[in-house]
């Protein structure tokens, strides 16, 4: 990610488009408050960490409950790892296109900003479509969230991630509209910084889901600790 504040030499800190005098602020309390961009980014970083902590509780629930299948189907019998691989590919590619969008925003290039954000959105939609199809097929096979404690924890964890991706897609749409209608205004770039952090964090959580829920979860019982 690169905006004007980061393209100026360190001595003149954030003397870019928005502030005439260089600030001696260090962000450690000395020299006045940190620039808005830092405050916004840091605040959102704290939110993301609290979101990760919420997910960790769902991960813990899944880890504790996934052997409790109540005589119903097990992870090994239910999950199709090819579908998981396709979902992973979509989300990983969309993280890359999101990074490209942040470079395009840094360059103030409207065309490439919109193209990379559109690619990010389409890959996100593909991910959600694959996930909904998987959920629908599980419920069709009688393995809905009410079947067993294992399936309740599975649908809660993976569904919560899916809800986050869906919310991210709505946010992405509004970001495209804002860049198109209002240009690369400073406050809109701050919002986009938060969006890109959110999108990258969702991919990090998905790494945990595909590794632990799908790959470890479908290991034969005798290989599990």
């Amino acid at each position: 990610m690169s905006t004007e504040a980061l393209r100026t030499p360190p001595g003149s800190s954030h003397a870019g488009h928005h502030s005439a005098a260089p600030s001696p602020a260090t962000g450690h309390g000395a020299g006045g408050p940190a620039p808005k961009r830092i405050v916004v980014g840091y605040g959102f970083w704290i939110f993301l960490l609290s979101d990760v902590i919420m997910f960790s509780a769902f991960f813990a629930a899944y880890a504790v409950l996934f052997k409790n299948t109540a005589g119903g189907p097990t992870a090994e019998q239910l999950f199709d790892l090819r579908n998981t691989a396709a979902e992973t590919a979509c989300l990983l590619a969309s993280t890359f296109t999101c990074a490209m969008a942040s470079l395009a925003v840094g360059e103030r290039n409207q065309k490439w900003t919109q193209i990379s954000l559109l690619a990010t959105g389409l890959l996100g939609v593909a991910f959600i479509t694959l996930e909904i199809r998987e959920f629908a097929s599980l419920i069709d096979r009688g393995a809905g969230p009410s079947r067993s404690a294992f399936l309740s924890s599975f649908f809660t964890l993976v569904g919560c991630h899916g809800v986050h991706v869906t919310a991210g897609l709505l946010w992405l749409g509004t970001m495209m509209a804002q860049f198109y209608a209002k240009g690369f205004r400073r406050d809109i770039r701050h919002r986009f910084l938060c969006f890109s952090l959110f999108w990258h964090a969702l991919d990090i959580i998905w790494v945990g889901i595909f590794s632990l829920v799908y790959l470890v979860g479908t290991l034969p019982r005798e290989l599990l600790p």
Binding site: M1, L6, H14, T26, G27, A30, G31, I38, L197
Partner: peptide, 28 residues
Amino acid sequence: MSGEHEFDAGSNVGEDRAPGAESAGEER
């Protein structure tokens, strides 16, 4: 770094970085 930054010599010299942002020091 000199002058106004001297009050805060040590590891914290210079501006902080927003998460997700690249270092201000590197021109890439």
